[in-house]
């Protein structure tokens, strides 16, 4: 080690110092990557421009909830419950959720693929499954926050409007469980699609297509089959084929929520299938992501 120079006003070159401090293991490192991904989903820790879109979307989500809360308070004499139930909020605002996933899933994955930073991660004490878990968890948490913040706003509004606290709390908690499932499913599907291409623009377009097109197609088909053909059961089964109707059906059957899809899962058998498919979808996304990163060229 070189001696420190003793001249005043000069930066001391204290030479190279060995590091004797703690070296955190895999779990802590994965957690650090998780919080990095979560913050990145909202543009924190990156340039100013990357914050614009996620914050704007969060703002719009909360604004709508705020308006509903205000309506609840202002019209307290007329209405005794919220205009839009908690559990239906996600379905109704799915466009915003879709744009958020479409924009931020590529931000999470495509950068590392495009700039080939991935080998730097895997030459560190971080296993590939840790990387996947951290990214998946980060985006799912970000989506959970996006979906929960408006519900809390509505809840506060409902309490201020003196709606029955017990009922509101119960409804809110059930809806929160539903948002967990929405967050995980949407994050999973979005990340799988994003991991397929290092091009961010294509990733965004592909994710949007998967969500929006599947919803438009399935919803229309459900409408036609339920109302013009009269087969509500078949219409219910079709709900398995699009992420948003899948989770909505899950909510309806498991949490007794008021569904917004055109047709609910048909009977108890349908409900069980919806639950199984939901979990299978989550598992499939996890497996596909791990497979993708096992095969990534380094």
């Amino acid at each position: 080690m070189s001696e420190p120079t003793a001249r005043t006003g000069v930066i001391h070159d204290i030479g190279y110092r060995k590091y004797d401090g703690p070296r955190l293991g895999r779990a802590r490192v994965a957690r650090a990557l998780y919080s990095h991904s979560l913050r990145g989903a909202y543009g924190l820790g990156r340039s100013g421009r990357s914050k614009v879109l996620p914050m704007m979307l969060l703002g719009v989500m909360c604004l709508v909830a705020f308006i509903i809360a205000v309506i609840a308070n202002v019209g307290a004499g007329i209405t005794s419950e919220l205009v839009l139930p908690y559990s239906a909020y996600t379905f109704t605002t799915q466009a915003i959720l879709t744009i958020f996933v479409a924009a931020q899933a590529p931000v999470s994955l495509s950068r590392d693929l495009r700039f080939r930073t991935v080998p730097l991660y895997f030459s560190r004490p971080l296993e590939r499954s840790d990387y996947v878990l951290a990214k998946f968890g980060g985006l799912a948490t970000a989506l959970f926050l996006l979906l929960t913040a408006p519900l809390l706003i509505m809840y506060v509004g409902a309490l201020l409007a003196e709606f029955p606290a017990g009922r509101e709390t119960g409804d809110l908690l059930l809806a929160l469980l539903g948002t967990v499932v929405f967050a995980v499913v949407f994050a999973g599907v979005g990340l799988v699609v994003a991991s397929l291409t290092p091009r961010r623009g294509l990733g965004v377009a592909a994710i949007i297509t998967v969500f929006a097109l599947s919803f438009a197609a399935i919803s229309t088909l459900q409408g036609i089959i339920r109302y013009e053909v009269g087969n509500a059961d078949l219409a219910g089964w079709l709900g398995l084929l699009s992420p948003v109707t899948l989770v909505d059906g899950f909510q309806v059957w498991v949490l007794d929520a008021s569904g917004r899809a055109v047709a609910p899962p048909p009977g108890d058998a349908g409900g069980v299938v919806f639950v199984l498919v939901t979990f299978a979808a989550i598992g499939a996304c996890w497996a596909l992501l791990n497979l993708r990163y096992r095969k990534v060229s380094i």
Binding site: Y19, G21, P22, R28, A32, L33, L120, Y121, R124, P125
Partner: peptide, 13 residues
């Protein structure tokens, strides 16, 4: 800094 944290160093270190 990010890469250092990925190697297991605590944030301030």
């Amino acid at each position: 800094v990010h890469m250092a944290r990925m190697s297991g160093l605590p944030a301030d270190a």
